[in-house]
């Protein structure tokens, strides 16, 4: 008796969300099967890879990242170079300098960076906040205003500030809203529910359901992604059918496997940059097969490898 295939194809699909404008615009989502199950049915738009840059410039970046951006002195130059990175589909600007517990740059100063970046590139832009919900509420709302007509995605709309971010990005300036929750399917759904109640269209929401580095509580990430994708497809849960974007590099380059210099690390660990790339690549690969529609990376080697994996699997 030959093998009896039983495809898991569903009569529903992940929402399609477009980011950016013109030829370089990208679409996230659209799958009506589990991640990369091309043999079951249409996987929709292929998963996308973003390149993360920071308002803090290249300070503290790994050598390979610095080398890639060599000669770039302004944020506009860095952004352009990021958009050209082989394998990159979009650019993600992280406004980490705004953190009140860190450098605490003013909102005006950061908005100037946002303008510089968004004007410099044709590629779609995804803006990440500074991790402080209160400041992000103001910062991201202003960023939405500054990027009018560019159809950018503003991440970091959390439970605490979704009203400010959602109203500005989703309602006033017609941008896309990134709903960020902390590795829990119920929190993710709740945030989508209240954001849509605010008047933001479900088709304008992308979820960041939380992220971790492999080995660091990543079990919760796996199960959250698995369960969200299962609910979206098998139960056609409209409030969980938003595409998922996962910032990877901001987590993976902070753990000791990626930061301990060869001299300080345990014997045999070898070159720190190679370890960092592997942490980034493996976390991204795991995110993608669990249901992320986009990942945000930063090392050119990681971007190339993940773009290739996506191409091979799609």
């Amino acid at each position: 008796m030959p093998f009896n295939r039983k495809p898991q194809k569903f009569n529903t699909a992940i929402n399609v969300v477009e980011i950016g404008t013109g030829d370089k615009a990208i679409k996230l989502g659209g799958a009506s099967v589990f991640p990369f199950y091309t043999f079951d049915g249409p996987i929709g738009n292929t998963a996308k890879v973003g390149v993360e840059i920071s308002d803090m410039g290249l300070e503290g970046e790994p050598a390979g990242v610095k080398a890639y951006y060599e000669g770039c002195t302004t944020m506009a130059e860095i952004a352009k170079k990021a958009a050209e990175m082989p394998g990159a589909d979009f650019v993600s600007l992280k406004l980490e300098g705004g953190d009140p517990n860190g450098v605490n740059k003013s909102v005006e100063e950061l908005i100037a960076v946002v303008k510089e970046v968004v004007d410099a590139i044709d590629a779609p832009l995804v803006i990440q906040g500074c991790k402080n919900a209160e400041k992000d509420g103001e910062l991201l709302a202003k960023a939405a205003e500054a990027c009018q007509g560019k159809n950018v995605l503003l991440m970091s709309a959390k439970e605490e500030n979704y009203k400010a971010v959602g109203a500005a990005a989703g309602l006033a300036y017609n941008q896309k809203v990134g709903a960020e929750s902390a590795v829990d399917i119920n929190l993710a759904k709740q945030l989508n529910v209240v954001t849509t109640q605010l008047g933001v269209k479900a088709e304008s929401i992308v979820m960041n359901v939380g992220t971790a580095t492999v080995g660091y509580g990543y079990d919760y990430v796996i199960s959250t992604l698995d369960r969200i994708r299962a609910a979206a497809l098998t139960q056609a849960d409209k409030m969980l059918q938003m595409p998922i974007i996962t910032p990877v590099s901001s987590e993976t380059w902070g753990v000791k496997e990626a930061t301990a210099d060869e001299a300080d690390a345990p014997a045999g660990w070898g070159c720190v940059e190679k370890r960092g790339i592997s942490m980034e690549v493996q976390t991204a690969a795991a995110d993608l097969v669990s249901g992320s529609d986009a990942v945000i990376l930063k090392h050119p080697a990681s971007v190339a490898a993940i773009a290739k994996m996506i191409k091979e699997l799609s």
């Binding site: 492999v214 080995g215 990543y218 796996i222 370890r275 592997s278 690549v281 976390t283």
Partner: peptide, 16 residues
């Protein structure tokens, strides 16, 4: 299997 491969993959497996 060098440490660059091992550290993430074993961490992932442990979580999984």
């Amino acid at each position: 299997m060098d440490y660059a491969m091992a550290l993430p993959v074993f961490g992932l497996r442990q979580n999984l």
